[in-house]
């Protein structure tokens, strides 16, 4: 046991400040342990989200000493013992209270994504897919919706006005998972380009760096989606076919 200082942001939409707490830290403690200890013993109204405490549910995202992390998977021993550990809420989302932010935007976006639409099964009623063909989709489905990727994405972190026209990394992972699902038949490319705004991503890979599930968000999800959109809109064969049918190039559905 060692007495350490944890400095937790306390406040609400009206403002707030870091408050220092002295806590006995045990061997192996993670930041969430310490925050919960503060809550139980010193500040029962300290607001924090958490569930599984094992890196599986993605509830306890926060900015710890400025780095976006899951509190349950961040050991206190990572930080120098003689300095306070700062815990702040995610910056990109509006603050509700203390460490709890309003992430409802994500649930709104989820509703706009056309759902999984499978092809008919094999004659015996079953689906067959090889493991190799589902490996990539499984990578995307590891996502625990911690929204750390959304939090660090410059497109929305530094430009909140983009939230209306850019879905953010989590939702490109979701779209990529659907688009690359071997059974899926829907075409979401127009949405990916227009509503989701994949073009805004400038491939800085900040999202990939913070993903606790090590999903290669930029390389495996976003870049292939960008390519698909480009293929759709600038495929020369398609351009020629459309011209022959008398359509304007690139006009897919009601784009206007």
């Amino acid at each position: 046991m060692a007495l350490r200082t944890i400095s937790i942001y306390r406040g609400d939409s009206g403002g707030g400040r870091f408050v220092d707490f002295q806590v006995d830290v045990e061997e192996g403690n993670v930041v969430l342990d310490v925050v919960l200890k503060v809550q139980a013993e010193q500040a029962p109204d300290l607001a924090v989200r958490w569930n599984c405490k094992a890196g599986r549910c993605g509830s306890c995202s926060a900015e710890i000493n400025g780095h976006p992390r899951l509190m349950c998977m961040t050991r206190m021993s990572m930080f120098p013992a003689d300095r306070p550990v700062y815990v702040a809420p995610l910056k990109t989302f509006p603050l509700i209270k203390d460490l709890v932010t309003d992430v409802s935007l994500n649930y709104q976006i989820a509703k706009t994504i056309p759902p999984f639409q499978p092809r008919p099964p094999d004659p015996d009623g079953l689906y067959r897919m090889s493991q190799e063909d589902v490996d990539r989709v499984q990578e995307f489905r590891r996502c625990i919706e911690c929204f750390l990727c959304q939090n660090v994405c410059h497109v929305i972190r530094d430009h909140p006005e983009n939230k209306a026209r850019f879905y953010g990394p989590r939702w490109f992972v979701r779209l990529a998972e659907l688009e690359m699902h071997p059974l899926d038949t829907a075409d979401r490319r127009q949405l990916i380009r227009e509503m989701a705004g994949v073009g805004f991503c400038n491939v800085t890979k900040c999202c990939t760096e913070v993903c606790p599930e090590h999903i290669k968000i930029t390389d495996n999800a976003i870049i292939p989606l960008k390519e698909r959109v480009v293929d759709l809109y600038f495929d020369p064969l398609r351009w020629l076919a459309d011209r022959l049918k008398g359509k304007r190039p690139g006009a897919v559905g009601a784009q206007q």
Partner: peptide, 11 residues
């Protein structure tokens, strides 16, 4: 419980 009724885990 201290505090108000907004997101108050103690309550």
């Amino acid at each position: 419980v201290p505090g108000n009724q907004q997101y108050n885990p103690g309550w």
